[in-house]
């Protein structure tokens, strides 16, 4: 996904001379296409994320569309107050790109596992949050982000992710990305690179279900959600993030509010699959850590 990000950013920068890329000394063997094409619009800030966010805010105040590249929790939790006060409050044009979220940096330990970042960002006003599921979706979303004037948090996988979903026509910020329709009560919502596992599992187990990629955890297209949960009464949400504050939470909150406000006549069953308030402290591959964190689908979830 990082390759898809860099390649699309290079494309966008061809016709947008305000695009600027900062890194906190990460992205070796990833950012080179941009650095070589636009050396004057790239800066390695060194390992100082708090100052880097401030620097990005200052650049955005001068009219730049600033992308910040780093990994896992470094451009998010490490500098969350700078993001809130200096970027989100004045609604500046800063895009924070975190690569390798969830358990992508599996054996590097809890410090490198971004499993709470979405919750932190969700709470901040003016912030758009997006977790694409595959390289194509990443490409589309980076193109979308380049046109968007405001703060965004883009959670990406790492490298060599497979294409999961067929490319769809351009969609809007907040939209669900329908992969498979179904007449059954089942609908699976999945966010991020764990979508690959989910789609394969559904195929292998021959489950009849609608499948949606939900790249945006904030905002969520309410009318689309309403339409989906009116059609489907059994929703399964799978994400690589803490259960307390991620996509599942966002869906439940929205559904709850719609039900409370009388927008939907019945409340659907919503099964949330996410990390149960724990850190992992053992080595393992990404799939094995996902299993250890109970990020697995089960036939019992579907009707």
């Amino acid at each position: 996904m990082r390759k898809a990000f860099v390649n699309q950013l290079v494309e966008e920068a061809k016709h947008n001379d305000k695009i600027f890329l900062l890194t906190g000394d990460l992205g070796f063997h990833a950012l080179e296409p941009f650095i070589e094409a636009y050396p004057d619009r790239f800066l390695n800030c060194g390992i100082n994320e708090q100052a880097m966010i401030g620097l990005a805010a200052g650049l955005a105040m001068g009219g730049f569309n600033v992308y910040i590249y780093s990994i896992a929790n470094f451009p998010s939790l490490r500098c969350i107050e700078q993001i809130r006060n200096d970027v989100a409050y004045p609604k500046l044009n800063v895009k924070i790109v975190s690569v390798g979220v969830g358990f992508a940096y599996s054996a590097l330990g809890a410090s490198h596992q971004a499993t709470e970042d979405m919750g932190m960002m969700r709470a901040i006003p003016n912030m758009v949050i997006c977790t694409p599921c595959d390289p194509s979706e990443t490409t589309q979303i980076i193109a979308m982000s380049a046109k968007y004037d405001g703060p965004m948090y883009l959670r990406l996988g790492k490298a060599r992710e497979k294409e999961v979903f067929e490319k769809v026509d351009e969609f809007e910020i907040g939209d669900f990305h329908a992969y498979q329709e179904s007449d059954t009560p089942n609908a699976l919502f999945v966010s991020g690179s764990i979508a690959d596992y989910a789609v394969n599992w559904i195929k292998e187990n021959q489950i009849s279900t609608a499948i949606y990629s939900v790249p945006f955890v904030k905002p969520i297209n309410q009318s689309q959600l309403k339409e989906i949960i009116t059609r489907h009464s059994n929703i399964v949400v799978l994400e690589e993030h803490q259960l307390s504050c991620g996509l599942g939470s966002a869906i439940v909150e929205q559904a709850n509010d719609m039900f409370a406000n009388g927008m939907i006549p019945e409340y659907p069953k919503i099964h949330r699959i996410g990390i149960h308030d724990l850190f992992l402290h053992v080595c393992g591959t990404t799939p094995s850590l996902r299993e250890k964190a109970f990020l697995t689908l089960d036939k019992g979830l579907f009707v």
């Binding site: 600027f20 100052a51 966010i53 401030g54 200052g58 650049l59 955005a60 105040m61 001068g62």
Partner: peptide, 13 residues
């Protein structure tokens, strides 16, 4: 930090 960004931006522009 924000002041650094403004000053850096001014140089770039």
């Amino acid at each position: 930090p924000v002041g650094c960004g403004i000053a850096y931006g001014a140089k770039k522009l």
